[in-house]
Computed example of a mutant assay.
Amino acid sequence: MRRVPPRTLLPRAAGAAALLMVLTGCGLFSGDDKAAGPVLSEPVGVTAQAGSATTVHVMWNRPVSTTDVTGYEVYRGTVRVKKLTAQQHMVDVTGLKAKSHYEFTVRARGKDGSLGPASRRVTVTTPAVVAADGSAPGRPGALRGEVDGARAVSLAWRKASDDRGVVSYDVYQGTTKIHSVGGTRTKALLTGLRPGTAYTFRVRARDAADNVSPPSDAVRLTTARGKDEGPGTAPEGFTATARRADGAYYLDLAWTAPETGGDVPAYQVYLDGRQATTVMWGESAPKDKATYSFYIGEQAGARHRVKLRGQLPDGTWGAFSPERTVVTGR
């Protein structure tokens, strides 16, 4: 592989303060750095959603590592606020202040008792408190859902009414809360489900005073059999164009992040059928439009195929975008 000077790698991302590149497909990292055994990595897919003026709902998924996990610790800043079992992947952090900014991270604990690295930091601001509000929101209406492949479903509902405003919507599988989205959203994509499995979902609305609505009507869905990812997890509006600059050609990519109900912290870019790079965002992944540019050589008339896929909130990889073909020098 041709080694490119750092100045020729031109990552660009709309709405992202820091963009980190992990070049995996071209062999830039040698096997000399392999660990002697299984290493506990950080939890993935971490999200934080204000549930009320004094609570935040934190969710995550298990690390992508081969070693056993025996528990999790949730941190607010540098202070540990929750210690949980390995089976728990979400928690409500209570006793917070209204109109306050918080940062959360999650760490996994291995079977030897040691803690793995901290997850990426997620930030959230609690809303203003609503005094003397004893009225719960009305139930969310018209809950409907669609199966999206073997491991995901999408839900949508009609917004609930509340005299002070809805802060969040909680999604329940049976009687267990499994997901939460902001009060301005009326849809969610649930990933990490089992193929060929029947599920029952309901949604409840929550206001700033922590009043919770009655549950919506239930929607029953059965995921498809097999291992395919549904198209709803793929990046949308994907485009690829070649441009010439400083005597070389670059590939400019643009897309819209899939609506997963959480951040899409990383994307894998495939060039000519092989993974070329993994693009990882730091503190803030783009919510909608994203762009990325990288060096592809100096030869005019070279034909390339490119596609990408995003990392879902559960840490798995979603469906690929449509594959685009570009020719340098045209």
Rank of each mutant, 00 (worst) to 15 (best):
M1I: 12
R2K: 13
L10E: 15
A13S: 15
A13C: 14
L19Y: 04
V22R: 15
T24K: 12
C26Q: 14
K34L: 14
G37D: 09
P43M: 02
P43F: 02
V44L: 09
V44I: 06
G45M: 04
V46W: 03
V46R: 03
T47C: 00
A53T: 00
H57T: 12
N61E: 03
V64N: 14
T70K: 07
V74I: 01
R76P: 04
R76A: 11
G77H: 06
K83Y: 07
L84P: 05
V91Q: 04
V91K: 00
D92G: 00
A98R: 01
A98W: 03
H101G: 03
Y102L: 05
Y102S: 03
E103T: 15
E103N: 13
T105W: 02
V106M: 05
A108K: 07
R109S: 00
K111E: 11
K111F: 01
G113W: 00
G116S: 06
S119F: 01
T126N: 06
P127M: 06
G134Q: 10
S135T: 15
A136T: 07
P137R: 04
P140E: 07
A142W: 02
L143P: 09
R144L: 05
G145V: 08
E146R: 13
D148N: 15
R151Y: 04
A156H: 07
W157V: 08
R158M: 07
K159A: 15
A160F: 06
S161V: 09
G165R: 03
V166L: 05
Y169M: 08
D170K: 08
D170H: 12
I178H: 03
S180C: 04
G182Y: 05
T184A: 09
R185A: 12
A188C: 10
L190D: 01
L193Q: 01
G196D: 13
T200I: 05
F201M: 04
A205R: 01
R206L: 00
A208K: 00
D217N: 14
A218Q: 15
L221P: 06
A224C: 05
A224I: 02
G226D: 08
K227W: 01
G230E: 02
G230H: 03
A234Y: 08
A234K: 06
P235S: 08
E236F: 08
T239M: 12
T239R: 14
A240N: 13
A242C: 10
Y249G: 06
A254R: 12
P258R: 06
E259K: 09
G262I: 03
P265Q: 11
V269Y: 05
V269H: 03
Y270V: 14
Q275N: 13
T277L: 14
G282P: 12
E283T: 07
K287F: 09
F294Q: 08
Q299T: 14
A300F: 09
R305Y: 11
V306S: 11
G310I: 09
G310L: 10
Q311P: 06
L312S: 07
D314L: 04
G318W: 02
A319P: 09
R324L: 11
T325E: 15
T328K: 08
R330Q: 13
